[in-house]
Amino acid sequence: MRRMSAADIVITPEDRPGVRSGEPPHAPKPPKQPKQPRATAQAAAPRGRGRRRAQRYRLDLSPVQKFAAIGVAVTALFVGGASLWQSGVLQRAWRDTGDSVLHLTALAGFRTTEITVAGRRRIPTDQIVSALGARHGDPILGLDIAAARDRLEALPGIRAAVIERRLPGSLHLVIVEREPVALWQYEGVYTLVDRDGKVIPGSIEGFEDLPLVVGEGAGARADELLTMLSSEPDLAARVKAATRVGNRRWNLTLDDIRTGLEVRLPEIEPEVAWTRLAELERSKGLASRPLAMIDMRVPDRLVLRPGRDLPQSAERPPQASSPLPPAPGLGKED
């Protein structure tokens, strides 16, 4: 670079940086290419990396699709739980845990050391203990009171039962036995029945003086019969047997079980006929006359049979094993 004066500055080609000798002195400088912006995902995406990811993977589901997805998840959970339950894994784990806890309570003193029973008269003790399902030394908290009560009340001779757990080690039972109200004779066999018609197992010894009901269905209708008879107590005291005829109506035997007076009651409204008989007895002494039979099956008429001869249908020899003679009239007259 040559200096001409203080006002003029001339730059020669040699003085320009990057120019080699031999180049034309005034070679045009190639135009600069404008910088192209880098098209990247970062420039196109909204700010925030977390927001980009959320928008990138967001699923727009309709309500029906959402409901279907929830249903699939619940079904999978239910099927998995059912499979575990059927495999027995959950039951065994629960039982083992419960058994361990009950064992600890027994070690702490909560075990059965005493069983007392109130109200027992006829039911064998071994039946009660077996139905209770508890033994001495068992964890007293492990007894299912409701299930034990159901087992006791399922015994034929027990009407109701109450179980008290008296901690730490006593079980107290209060039972109500079925009260026999009649003897039921059917096919030559005598059994005791209560007011519900339930058969009470065991011996009939000591109950031979109870009213005797005879025939098919007579045991189940004993309460109905006794309720009717109780409306006229004086005449009811003379009834020794009642035979169920065709499981439809009653024949009563008064005074003597073999040679007594037979009274045939109607199928419909037998209580009306019974009240009428009591009134005739009070006014005319009808049932005290030497009659063999009074037929009251027709409402406005009485059919009388004189004498005290036993009807031929009732002639049956007593069985050797029977403590009572067979009842008369097993329903051949309809």
Rank of each mutant, 00 (worst) to 15 (best):
A39H: 12
P323K: 03
I70A: 09
V272Q: 15
E153T: 14
A146M: 10
G157F: 04
S170R: 15
R52K: 14
P37T: 13
G88R: 05
R221G: 11
M293V: 02
L229M: 06
S170P: 04
E267S: 15
Q86N: 10
A237T: 07
R258D: 15
A73Q: 13
V239E: 05
Q36H: 11
R53Q: 13
P25C: 08
A241N: 01
R289W: 02
G169Y: 06
R3N: 10
I204C: 08
P311M: 00
M4I: 05
A236N: 02
M296Q: 02
L330I: 10
P168F: 04
E224A: 04
G197C: 05
E23F: 04
P168L: 03
D256T: 13
R38L: 15
I268M: 14
L143H: 13
G81A: 15
R248Y: 06
R2V: 08
L171V: 09
E333C: 05
V303W: 01
R121Q: 06
P31I: 11
V129W: 06
S62H: 06
R49I: 10
A44Q: 13
S313C: 08
L212W: 00
T227W: 00
Q36W: 05
G137C: 11
P211Q: 09
V214S: 08
I70V: 13
P311L: 01
P266F: 10
P323Q: 04
T191S: 07
P233H: 03
A44M: 14
R165S: 12
G142Q: 12
R49Q: 13
L304C: 03
E153D: 07
R308V: 06
D60I: 14
P46K: 13
I140H: 10
A43S: 15
P124Q: 12
A278E: 11
S83N: 02
L302F: 06
P46Y: 07
Q185F: 09
T243P: 01
I175D: 01
V19S: 08
K332F: 09
A242C: 11
L252K: 02
R308M: 07
R178S: 09
H136K: 15
P63I: 06
G98E: 13
D300M: 05
R92A: 05
T75K: 04
A118K: 00
L210E: 03
A314T: 04
T105F: 11
D8H: 08
A134E: 13
I200M: 02
G202F: 03
I11P: 00
G206L: 01
P156T: 09
G80Y: 07
K35L: 15
L252N: 02
A118F: 00
D209Q: 07
R249L: 07
T125E: 14
Q65E: 08
R47G: 13
I140R: 09
S62I: 04
R249F: 02
A134I: 12
R166P: 05
G285D: 08
S321P: 00
A292V: 01
K332R: 12
A278W: 05
V74H: 04
R53D: 07
L59M: 11
G80Q: 05
A320M: 05
S230P: 04
V213L: 08
A292E: 00
S230W: 01
R248V: 06
L286D: 05
A118I: 01
M228Q: 07
W85T: 03
T259M: 14
G307P: 01
T105M: 12
A242W: 08
T105Y: 12
